[in-house]
Design a protein around this nucleic acid. Sequence first.
DNA 1: CTCTTATATGAGAAAAGCTATCAATTAGGA
DNA 2: TCCTAATTGATAGCTTTTCTCATATAAGAG
Lengths: 134, 134
Amino acid sequence: MKEKRQTIQKGLIWEAVSAADNHPNAEQIYDSIVVKHPSISRATVYRNLNMLVDEGKVKRIRVLGGPDHFDRTLGNHFHIQCIECKSVGDIEMLADLSISADSLETYGYELDSYELVFNGVCPDCKKSHAAKVQ
Amino acid sequence: MKEKRQTIQKGLIWEAVSAADNHPNAEQIYDSIVVKHPSISRATVYRNLNMLVDEGKVKRIRVLGGPDHFDRTLGNHFHIQCIECKSVGDIEMLADLSISADSLETYGYELDSYELVFNGVCPDCKKSHAAKVQ
DNA sequence: CTCTTATATGAGAAAAGCTATCAATTAGGA
DNA sequence: TCCTAATTGATAGCTTTTCTCATATAAGAG
């Protein structure tokens, strides 16, 4: 009795996250699937995203005042969210936080994960500001 | 017509955040105030916490799967949350992220803030594990 | 000190995001 | 093909936070 069945839905959700060039949230993933597979439920999307996160195949990106975003885990990088349009972009590894993470043991904690998210104004939104000011 | 009135409630909320040695969430702040000032409303607590965050007097700590926590901003430090008991602790500055932050401009972003949260098991929860296993 | 009025509050409804529940469906081994 | 536990879809429910609006109040004007 192994357990962990492969289902159509699981496949579609994994595809949707993998294919996305942005960092979609659960609703956006649902939207992208429901066109081709109208019977899919939001609950299934949330459930499977959680599974993928638990399995380490997908990273959950928690942002200020909005739904979680999801990212196929491909190497070490951080994220930056635009505080205006809410889009999420990638930031290449800037600091080696794994070193910092190790020293956490001096605090008596057993480290599980860490999350670094930058907040700023993206190039596009900066541009539209300039347009408005003129 | 300046505008930004000082109220009893504002004072109480600021006091509550300042006095707390842990990193309370909105509900805990409400609870600590309501004993002495029973008429205070949750809405007022949320409203004023948001103001304090906007003014930079208080830092919002966003954690996985739970309410935001709040911390009086005192110098540069990060946070670590126990993934079991949900308590939030302080971590002294381990890496100079302001340097990393500067280089974000190469991405065309205008940086506003960043947030680094570690997730792990706190000393107390580790202890109770050990107790159970034996 | 009183009047004025725009800001702030309190109470509760509502929104947003996510999880729980459960009957019906289905993957996949026997 | 059959069996059965895992999974799904639908929806209710929960948690956290914001919104709405009538009422109360801070603080400047007179």
